[in-house]
């Protein structure tokens, strides 16, 4: 287990070893014909933050949806491999049972319930819980504690709040189910850099203070690798590279392809194009 520069001290959860989630060589087919994931394996340690990186269409969202079992609603299917949560297979669970088991997904593009108020959005997040109104109310206060902005907007319809507030609402709503693990899909999408930083900062706090594990899919490699401890890079439905976050950040290929840095300073566009083309047809 290694740590990024932003988290020098090991958090207690990170030390408690053993993976919470193991994805073993899964293959996903949409509509019976379109092969999207061609054998993806990954592991999330208990109390870890793992980043899933890659370009558009690499299979990040599909991987998350395969885990959360939302694929079925989109005519997708996991045809090979297995997914285990704390040692038990969860491939066949409905999303409802999976949320009860402690895994909840925050979908790409927020997906708040537009016509419900922020507070009602949070309450729907607690749908699967059976531990009484008082406990739910406590957790709402907890969410407001992490996202004070939401408290100020608690009575507003979610559809009228800003993109950042909606992202907070979506994460807060996921928290309301008291998850062990959150699958976070593109939290930075369409947000100002400063806000992205706030969101990731909160993710880190949740990880350290509440012990929630995170698997986050991100295009913003730079930010993701600063907050995650481990990273997987997906390309065309395969994991092409994985490693500790700080090692990935130093990796020449990652620097060049995802961080827009290269050893030889700026190169002309023609060189880059040539290089990439060669690489693709390898």
């Amino acid at each position: 287990m290694s740590h990024t520069a932003t988290s020098p001290s090991p958090s207690p959860q990170a030390v408690a070893a053993g993976p919470i989630l193991v994805v073993n060589n899964i293959e996903v087919i949409y509509d019976h014909v379109i092969l999207v994931l061609k054998g993806v394996s990954l592991e999330v340690p208990k109390g870890g933050i793992v980043a899933l990186l890659g370009a558009n269409g690499a299979g990040k969202t599909t991987t998350l949806k395969a885990i959360s079992n939302l694929l079925h609603a989109e005519r997708g299917e996991v045809t090979k491999g297995s997914i285990e949560l704390e040692g038990a297979r969860v491939d066949a669970l409905t999303p409802n049972d999976l949320v009860k088991a402690g895994v909840v997904q925050v979908m790409e593009g927020r997906h708040c319930f537009e016509h419900l108020t922020i507070e009602e959005n949070l309450l729907t997040g607690a749908y699967t819980r059976k531990d009484g109104r008082a406990a739910v109310q406590d957790d709402i206060e907890l969410v407001y504690n992490y996202f004070p902005r939401l408290k100020a907007r608690r009575g507003s319809m979610a559809g009228y709040t800003s993109g950042g507030e909606q992202q907070m609402c979506a994460i807060g709503r996921a928290l309301m189910s008291r998850p062990k693990m959150i699958l976070l899909d593109e939290p930075s999408m369409g947000l100002a850099p400063q806000l992205v930083e706030t969101i990731f900062e909160t993710v880190k706090r949740l990880n350290e203070e509440e012990g929630v594990s995170f698997l986050l899919a991100e295009q913003n490699t730079n930010v993701a690798l600063r907050y995650a401890r481990y990273g997987y890079i997906l390309e065309n439905g395969r994991v092409v590279l994985d490693g500790d976050a700080d090692k990935l950040r130093e990796n020449e290929d990652v620097k060049e392809f995802y961080l827009g840095l290269s050893a030889g300073g700026r190169r002309s566009y023609r060189d880059v194009k040539h290089y990439k083309r060669r690489k693709r047809w390898l």
Binding site: V106, G125, S177
Partner: peptide, 23 residues
């Protein structure tokens, strides 16, 4: 009610409702 709220949530966004565990 809890179920009533869930009904309104489903009306807004099926996918999101599924993702938070509403059957």
């Amino acid at each position: 009610t809890r179920v009533g709220r869930a009904l309104r949530a489903v009306a807004d966004d099926h996918q999101a409702a599924l993702s938070v565990g509403i059957p």
